[in-house]
Design a protein around this nucleic acid. Structure first.
Lengths: 237, 237
DNA sequence: GTCAGCGATATTGTCACCAATCGTGCAAAA
DNA sequence: TTTTGCACGATTGGTGACAATATCGCTGAC
């Protein structure tokens, strides 16, 4: 039986060849960013094999560069490498997505509290601007725009916290769970639920109430976890 | 002016040559573990240069293996790499150590709560055993033994939580801050302060009270943060 | 018809070498 | 005496080739 599940057998040759740009040589970790983006963007589906030679040709970089990039990505938890069997896009299970959200709840709560303490007037204005964008997106049914604003909001809060360590941890977790996050955003009625939660977070931070900000973030991510669990009961796609 | 600060100029040749063991060849990421241990154990001091050729000779592995190991360690935050200038042991500042402790407070709180919910009778017995070990160590003034039991306790709680993601995050953070943790343990009177906090954590988990467990962990790590801040005022060594 | 054995192929892991880059020390000029 | 320029040594980054290893398909026996 040679029919393996998912895309296990698919090769990673140019899925959309946007001009290899004939990278002469040199840049090593530029490739890292490109491959990471391709994975996060969903250009490579979970469980897809990432063959070094293919990527090398796809990005016009030496196999050496691709190799180190895959090493990094494995360490970031985006790809899985097994000895002598190569790398493939790591699939994060729903259980793991829930775990990630739980950790995010704890750490983003911390960030929100710190952000509330440090937010200046113009920071508050920016956050409220993002909130307005989210409201508009929901009103227009612009799912993609809402998702973007969502990510931007969380990112700004992280940055505002001034907690570099938390920021790095969260950024790593976000990259891993981006697929589940996206699937969640596509669920009908989901934005209507999360919008008021987001607005509550913004208000708490803007009013400088650290405790309230942490609570609002925890409530929001708790709702995300519930939504993920609910999504388990109806078929993934 | 060729006198640079710290150990910046020191080379990384066999600081204590414990028989290179003449590794024939082959194993790549076994070297990773060895170098990581050496750094965590303090065999290489912060800011010390890690020259690929030296490590290669020291561990009897190819420069290739050492190279990938350094890549990994850089990603783990244990070493710092700059283009064309090599790797050196990363120094985590006191501010960063505090940041790490803050994140630990959030994530270990989560773990403790989950551990309280999942702990079985024999788990409780084990935790209480560790608690007894800590009490004995403090009574005997056995700083090293206390430190070991301390690490063991935190590790067991992480494992008990069944939260793999949190576990990985915490393990990475621990490796980074081990030096500060150790310096803290050496502070006179510190064990006497942290012992009751640890015992409170153990009791909360054993009694299955998730909220209390989380609170106890947060209180403990809050005290760690205070101690770190206090250590800032008196000379580092 | 199924399964074990086996050779061919694809892919990764490692090594030796070369090029590029940086730091350092010396020498010459101001 | 100080500063600037320059060359050398040390070290890393990258490439190509080769060895090691796993996968796949085929053949043949039970």
């Amino acid at each position: 039986m040679s029919a393996d599940l998912g895309a296990s057998g698919a090769r990673a040759d140019a899925p959309a060849g946007p001009a290899p740009a004939r990278r002469g040589e040199g840049d090593a970790d530029a490739v890292l960013g490109e491959i990471r983006d391709a994975i996060v963007r969903g250009e490579y589906v979970p469980d897809q094999r990432l063959v070094e030679a293919d990527l090398s040709a796809r990005f016009g970089a030496g196999r050496s560069a691709v190799r180190t990039a895959l090493l990094q990505l494995a360490n970031e938890g985006l790809v899985e490498r097994v000895q002598n069997r190569g790398a493939r896009v790591r699939t994060v299970s729903l259980e793991e997505a829930i775990e990630i959200s739980e950790v995010r709840m704890a750490v983003e709560g911390l960030c929100a509290a710190k952000a509330a303490e440090r937010a200046k007037a113009d920071d508050a204005a920016e956050l409220r601007g993002i909130g307005a964008r989210m409201e508009a997106a929901v009103a227009m049914g612009d799912v993609l725009g809402y998702s973007e604003a969502n990510q931007l909001l969380h990112q700004r809060i992280r940055a505002l916290s001034g907690q570099g360590t938390a920021e790095r941890v969260l950024e790593r977790l976000r990259a891993q769970s981006v697929r589940h996050q996206f699937r969640l955003a596509l669920q009908p009625g989901r934005p209507a639920v999360s919008l008021p939660e987001h607005l509550a977070i913004i208000e708490a931070i803007c009013s400088g109430d650290a405790r309230a900000a942490e609570r609002a973030v925890r409530r929001h991510l708790g709702s995300v976890i519930e939504a993920l669990k609910a999504a388990n009961h109806q078929p993934p796609r």
